[in-house]
């Protein structure tokens, strides 16, 4: 198919710790299409975060190739990667990673600042996304004044504000209670229904159940890759 968003070929990541080399990711071949909702699962230390960091262009692979939207990004420079992250990728982190001293609105505006969007347009788009995640009345609040669920929704709004091709979430519900987790997952599922491509890392099966496809990693390689039965039948 020609709407492939992610394609990796023999993606590898080694960490050298003194005399020892940790093979965190040992050759992953994966294709993810537009409008997919994929949950990456696997035991602790299986390389999920390492893989996600490479997909998110935060890290470069030791070996292998990675195309994002048809562009070979595994060979880009730091600043080119920064631009790709800014334009094509939205991140949602387990620990939210909001700027504590800035308002929700300013936090959501951040990616637009680095995209060079003018202040009025920036404000408009940030407000729109905050309203979309149901925080229209909390825009001037700062993260420490918000609940975990609210913070994660600010993070989701921030991840979406650049209209990225790909939304990446590494254990987005890891710091939330189960009710709040479900709310956030409903939000992501709704976004996916509207066409957003999502790649999610989780330990929990009920969280992975929101996705349409599951990829299981073990020791840095894909162990299983299958469709959730309730999900769409495309492949």
């Amino acid at each position: 198919m020609n709407d492939v968003i992610i394609r990796t070929e023999g993606l590898k990541k080694d960490y050298v710790l003194g005399a020892e080399t940790v093979h965190a990711v040992r050759g992953v071949d994966l294709e993810i299409h537009r409008n997919e909702f994929v949950a990456v699962m696997g035991p602790s230390g299986s390389g999920k975060s390492t893989f996600m960091n490479m997909i998110g262009c935060l890290d470069t692979p030791t070996a292998g190739k990675y195309w994002l939207n048809g562009q070979l990004v595994s060979e880009l420079t730091d600043d080119e990667l920064a631009r790709v992250r800014n334009k094509a990728i939205g991140f949602v982190f387990q620990t939210f990673n909001l700027l504590p001293r800035a308002s929700a609105l300013h936090n959501v505006e951040l990616p637009l600042i680095y995209a060079g969007v003018g202040s009025r347009e920036r404000r408009r788009r940030a407000q729109e996304k905050l309203q979309m995640v149901g925080l229209g009345d909390r825009m001037e609040h700062k993260p420490p004044e918000m609940s975990g669920g609210q913070r994660q929704r600010v993070a989701v709004a921030r991840a979406l504000v650049n209209d990225p091709a790909l939304l990446l979430a590494d254990e987005p519900t890891g710091n939330l209670d189960s009710t709040t987790s479900q709310e956030v997952m409903e939000q992501l599922a709704a976004l996916n229904r509207e066409g957003q491509t999502i790649l999610l890392v989780t330990h929990e099966h009920d969280i992975a159940a929101y996705a349409k496809r599951q990829v299981h990693l073990r020791d840095g390689i894909i162990e299983k890759d299958f469709m959730n039965h309730h999900g769409g039948a495309e492949a």
């Binding site: 730091d78 992250r85 680095y114």
Partner: peptide, 11 residues
């Protein structure tokens, strides 16, 4: 780290 993840360049 956050700023870089969101697209800030070194510069």
């Amino acid at each position: 780290g956050v700023r870089k993840a969101l697209g800030a360049t070194r510069q």
